[in-house]
Simulated scan of single mutants.
Amino acid sequence: MEPALSQLSKLTASETHRLDRVVVAISVNPELGTPVPDSLLRDYADDVDGVRVIYFVTALRQITIVAYVEA
């Protein structure tokens, strides 16, 4: 958890806002991204906001996210 908090603290306000928009979209529709072959992961790229998210949805609909925000 500590590495994630450290990375979040390095995001600018604009990057945080862009990432938040994508996280909300995925939370509303967890099937938004495309399945990654041979895995349970999904891949979603928002070209408008420059955010790419690889995520996993558990059986209880919890979402674990790894994100990349382009400058």
Rank of each mutant, 00 (worst) to 15 (best):
M1L: 12
M1K: 08
M1A: 13
M1P: 02
E2Y: 07
E2D: 08
E2C: 03
E2V: 07
P3H: 04
A4Y: 10
A4G: 07
L5S: 06
Q7A: 15
Q7F: 09
Q7H: 11
Q7R: 15
S9R: 14
S9W: 08
S9F: 10
K10Y: 09
K10T: 05
K10A: 07
K10M: 13
K10P: 00
L11F: 13
L11N: 03
L11C: 04
L11R: 04
T12Q: 05
T12W: 09
T12E: 07
A13T: 06
S14H: 09
T16Q: 15
T16P: 03
T16K: 15
T16H: 15
T16L: 15
T16F: 15
H17P: 00
H17I: 04
H17R: 10
R18T: 00
R18P: 01
R18C: 03
L19D: 00
L19I: 03
L19H: 02
L19E: 02
D20L: 10
D20E: 13
D20S: 09
D20Y: 07
D20Q: 11
R21V: 06
R21I: 06
R21S: 05
V22D: 01
V24A: 11
A25M: 06
I26Y: 00
I26C: 01
S27Q: 15
V28A: 05
V28G: 01
N29H: 12
N29Q: 15
N29L: 14
P30Y: 04
P30W: 05
E31I: 05
L32A: 05
G33S: 04
G33W: 00
T34V: 11
T34M: 13
T34G: 10
V36H: 08
V36N: 06
V36D: 11
P37S: 10
P37W: 14
P37N: 10
D38C: 08
D38V: 08
D38F: 15
S39F: 07
S39W: 09
L40T: 08
L40I: 07
L40E: 14
L40F: 11
L41Y: 15
L41A: 09
R42V: 05
R42W: 12
R42I: 09
Y44M: 03
Y44Q: 02
Y44G: 01
Y44R: 02
Y44S: 02
A45N: 08
A45I: 14
A45G: 03
D46Q: 09
D46E: 14
D47P: 01
D47L: 14
V48F: 06
V48D: 12
D49F: 10
D49C: 05
V51I: 08
V51R: 00
V51H: 02
V51M: 04
R52T: 09
R52S: 05
V53C: 03
I54M: 10
I54H: 07
I54P: 00
Y55H: 03
F56V: 04
F56W: 07
V57I: 14
V57S: 06
T58H: 08
T58D: 06
A59G: 06
A59M: 14
A59P: 01
L60E: 14
L60V: 09
L60S: 11
L60W: 13
R61L: 12
R61N: 10
R61C: 08
R61K: 12
Q62D: 13
Q62T: 07
Q62V: 05
I63K: 03
I63A: 00
I63R: 03
T64R: 13
T64H: 15
I65S: 01
V66A: 12
V66Y: 13
V66T: 08
V69K: 01
E70F: 12
A71N: 12
A71W: 11
A71Y: 10
